[in-house]
Write a protein that binds this DNA or RNA. Structure first.
Lengths: 341, 341
DNA sequence: TTATCGTACTAAAACGTTTGAGAAAAGATT
DNA sequence: AATCTTTTCTCAAACGTTTTAGTACGATAA
């Protein structure tokens, strides 16, 4: 009862040794006799002892706990398909290394209204991973510049380690593939201002240029990420052009579905009449027929890389090299890109 | 530097009062003068003081931290669409009440290999929410029977509070709707053994019976949850029956997509030639045309209810009433159910 | 014999907080 | 003037752990 709690003291009493001896025995210090160690460990087991994380943290200044900060524009939180996969991978890797993960509160209405950094310090996180947030939020800046080890995902801060997916490479592969299928009139609907967007957009222009193609301004439209409505409208706009594209690239798979809806409403068949491609490689992309052509992000790799670097930083604070790790994606041809009529 | 840490002691020095006074002032105890309080709070602010969660937890035996346990058969973890929505809602509600959430380690290979309960006690969680796990895992049993407040989602344990979605009601509504569209030959592919499955299956039979329909055994097939391949195969089996159904109900939306693939492969149009419906109301269901007919689970309500009950239990340990909260879903007609030919 | 060493242990302080019991000073009541 | 209250503050213990310095003691070396 009363939140049963066996402490070192209880074991020390049961074994007739001091508390210090028990602590050392359980932590396998060298200055405790073999026999004593074994006895203590046995008794600890029998009594159902578990260390107290709070006491350990207080004493050692280490929590074995990593903070996760994630807020996206749409406030979709955990339900964000891309992020939830990254986080899942991050979590697995962290757990394998004995770390737990706790969310850094994203609700600004929290009773004590602490900033992200304050919250992280309050919990004593050994490290923090930041993803998909509004990187212009001053609170994020404060956190980045605090003295807790940090890795960021998909956004580069100059004084921190960043894990970023290879947006330029993915876009290059995509354009290259579409080109090889015979398309020359390629439109690109891109997400709103972010470093990810910029990287892809630049790569789009560059790749097109490498193939000797010029991109009419009307072929490049903006629409929010993961907003099928916006993509729907943008698609209609493209279709109403005097010379509509034969292929439309979308900023993400959800948007691509918005596009599909617009196209099928206009009676256009995919890929016979028009070709499309998404980006991200979400589950839904692979569940439809024809399978959506897309660039599958290596979410497993991103999450793992982030966890590995962060844990590395935590364990070797001096070796805090600034680094950008680029994780490649993989083009998934699917069936939504055909040869233009 | 060195993980900057302003403590009560620093404030007490700066203000020329005792540590106790500082603590009481910051916690608004009544035995501290107004003026002193204000001064202390101001100085705390200036010095950038933040409480230390570990020390507080050690002293008060309260962590303001809730543990989340979630492992599903497919080990899809956080990427599980239904659960990630429930968790997101849970998280928001918990945060509004000043709680953080931390995952209970699901990786059995963790270095210290603690059981779920051991882990929860180690972290000192004030409460625990359990969802979608293998409820026959003895470790889950141990956790349920431990003395930490627990709520379970979608599974009833007799001595604990459970939040469950209204599977019987949802299935009834679905059958009723399909019936009203004129269908009489209705097949049901259901998930593998679980209380959710059983509740829906029973409700399916009962609803059919209420409409005076008998269900041929061949119309009821099993296929794992969220397995589009399995649903694909089951669908083909149904189509090869001498008298195939005019409508197929799937255990979840992902499975429904597997079914769609099988049907379109056979050249059947939806809903002209055959009708289908999913369950869950995932994002992908609403992104396709025609929109998938499905029962949208109130994930927001489920998550919130779970958080509210759990926090209630935490704050009033005596009022630990055993309760089952049923959260209703909502039939989303979509466009995949038409009138049978 | 005495100094030196190694092994196995303990004492006690410390981490940062909370809290009940008390103390000092000022005000109110007899 | 003496006593009781009230207000405001401090003392000190406690939460469970880790760790440094030190002790006791038998063995080895001089």
């Amino acid at each position: 009862m009363s939140r049963n709690s066996v402490s070192l003291k209880d074991i020390s009493k049961a074994c007739g040794v001091s508390i210090a001896t028990v602590s050392k025995a359980l932590n396998d210090h060298s200055d405790i006799g073999q026999e004593t160690k074994e006895n203590i460990k046995r008794v600890a087991q029998e009594l159902g002892y578990h260390p107290n994380a709070a006491a350990q943290a207080l004493k050692t200044r280490r929590t074995n706990n990593i903070g996760v900060l994630f807020v996206d524009e749409a406030n979709s939180g955990l339900t964000h398909d891309y992020f939830s996969h990254v986080l899942d991978s991050f979590k697995r890797c962290a757990e394998r290394n004995g770390f737990d993960i706790t969310f850094i509160n994203a609700d600004k209405t929290r009773p004590d209204n602490m900033t992200y950094l304050a919250h992280a310090m309050y919990r004593g996180f050994d490290g923090v991973v930041i993803a998909c947030v509004d990187f212009f939020d001053p609170q994020v800046d404060e956190l980045i510049n605090g003295n807790i080890p940090v890795v960021t995902i998909d956004h580069i801060f100059y004084n921190r380690i960043a894990i970023i997916s290879d947006n330029a490479g993915g876009m290059r592969d995509l354009v290259s593939y579409v080109y090889s299928m015979g398309h020359r009139k390629i439109a690109y609907i891109h997400g709103l201002e972010s470093s990810v967007t910029q990287a892809r957009l630049a790569s789009f222009y560059r790749s097109m240029q490498d193939f000797g193609l010029t991109v009419p301004d009307e072929y490049v439209l903006a629409s929010p990420y993961r907003d099928s409505e916006g993509a729907y409208r943008a698609t209609l706009k493209l279709l109403s052009l005097p010379e509509p594209p034969t292929c439309i690239l979308y900023p993400d798979d959800v948007s691509a579905f918005g596009g599909i809806n617009a196209l099928s409403e206009r009676g256009l068949r995919i890929p016979e009449d028009i070709s499309i491609a998404g980006y991200d490689g979400t589950e839904m992309a692979s569940r439809v027929i024809p399978m959506l052509t897309t660039v599958v992000q290596d979410t497993e790799g991103i999450g793992r890389a982030a966890a590995e670097r962060l844990i590395d930083m935590i364990n070797n604070p001096k070796a805090a090299l600034i680094e950008q790790v680029i994780i490649e994606g993989r083009l998934e041809p699917g069936g939504t890109v055909g040869r233009p009529a």
